[in-house]
Simulated assay, not measured.
Amino acid sequence: MDTELLNTDMLNEAQSWILNNQGLLIEYSVNIAAALLTLIIGFMAVGMLTGGLNKVLKARKVDSTISDFVTSLIKYGLLAFVLIAAMSRVGVQTASFVAIVGAAGLAVGLALQGSLSNFAAGVLLIGFRFFKAGDYVEAAGTAGTVHSVQIFTTILLTPDNRMIVVPNAKILNDNIINYSREKTRRIDLVIGVAYSADLKKTKEVLTRIVNADPRILKEPECRVAVNNLGASSVDFIVRPWVQAEDFWTVRFDLLEKIKNELDANGIGIPFPQMDVHLHQKEPQRLKQEVA
């Protein structure tokens, strides 16, 4: 009986509190609904806006490294704005929130110095344009084709289609070699021939091979010359200039043609050799040394 009376009293008190605070509950319900609606619409609007901006930048043929970086930066900035707007709808004081975020940002910034340096490095990489999407680069101890520059990292794709994620700070603090920046490249070959080979004939054969390939540029002129007198070979350098996109195909073809032509002309290509001399000791002397 006492339990039923207690439950009845609690129910009456709850009903009375709801009736007395009906306006406050309605206000909070509306604010919460408005906050949720702000989040949903805001996230959708940010996605559409950044997606449209990315398409416009690409339509204007802006380099994808710049467009991806800019749209990512704008996206996260707008999402933070939407989150603050939603919190203000439920009564959170945005001024106090910004102050708290600023203090927390300072603490997080001290803890995440590496991430902030990666962000700053990303801005510098975009600003100075050391490379763009599609360039083949060597940086931070790795090499690959630039896919995109993100806020904190740069994405590279290797020739065997592996993805490498490199922190921007490591790239900026290391040497950057861009193999795609210039339109032409020089192929550097070292061809070793035997000391018994006719050097004049060898040079003529190498020059003929180079001149017969239409992909090799006439200017700058290809350099064919004796470069070194090695331990077991006379080394020729062959340095033709080609278009950057033809570099590897021409290099592979030249190596194959040079080997075949040198063989056809009786010009030997030596390989490292070692002469081992065995000296037999007299039996009596060997016994004395053993004793």
Rank of each mutant, 00 (worst) to 15 (best):
E4G: 07
D9K: 12
M10H: 14
M10W: 07
N20Q: 14
N20V: 02
I26D: 04
E27T: 15
N31A: 15
A34T: 07
L36G: 12
L37S: 15
I40H: 12
I41P: 14
A45N: 01
L49R: 00
V56L: 15
A59E: 10
T65A: 11
S67P: 00
V70N: 02
S72I: 02
S72G: 08
I74A: 11
I74Q: 03
L79R: 02
L83P: 01
L83E: 00
A86K: 02
V92P: 13
Q93I: 09
I100R: 11
G105S: 12
L106F: 13
G109R: 07
L116V: 15
N118C: 13
N118D: 15
N118E: 08
A121H: 00
A121I: 05
L125V: 07
F131N: 01
K132N: 04
A139G: 05
A140R: 00
T145A: 12
V146G: 01
Q150K: 14
F152H: 13
L156K: 02
N161H: 12
N161R: 10
R162H: 07
I164C: 10
N168L: 12
I171W: 06
I171E: 01
L172F: 04
L172E: 01
I177L: 05
I177C: 01
E182R: 08
E182I: 06
K183S: 08
T184S: 06
S196Y: 01
A197D: 02
A197I: 02
L199T: 09
K200S: 14
K201F: 02
K203E: 13
V205F: 12
L206Q: 02
T207E: 09
V210Y: 01
N211S: 13
D213W: 01
L217S: 04
K218Q: 11
E219S: 14
P220Q: 05
C222E: 03
V224W: 04
A225S: 08
N228I: 08
L229M: 11
A231N: 07
S232R: 13
S233W: 00
D235I: 10
F236S: 03
P240W: 03
W241H: 10
V242A: 03
Q243I: 08
A244I: 03
A244E: 14
T249E: 15
V250N: 03
R251W: 01
R251F: 05
E256F: 03
K259E: 14
E261M: 12
D263R: 10
N265C: 04
G266I: 02
G268N: 02
P272Y: 08
M274C: 05
D275H: 02
L278K: 03
H279N: 09
K281E: 14
P283I: 15
Q284L: 15
R285T: 10
L286D: 12
E289C: 11
A291T: 14
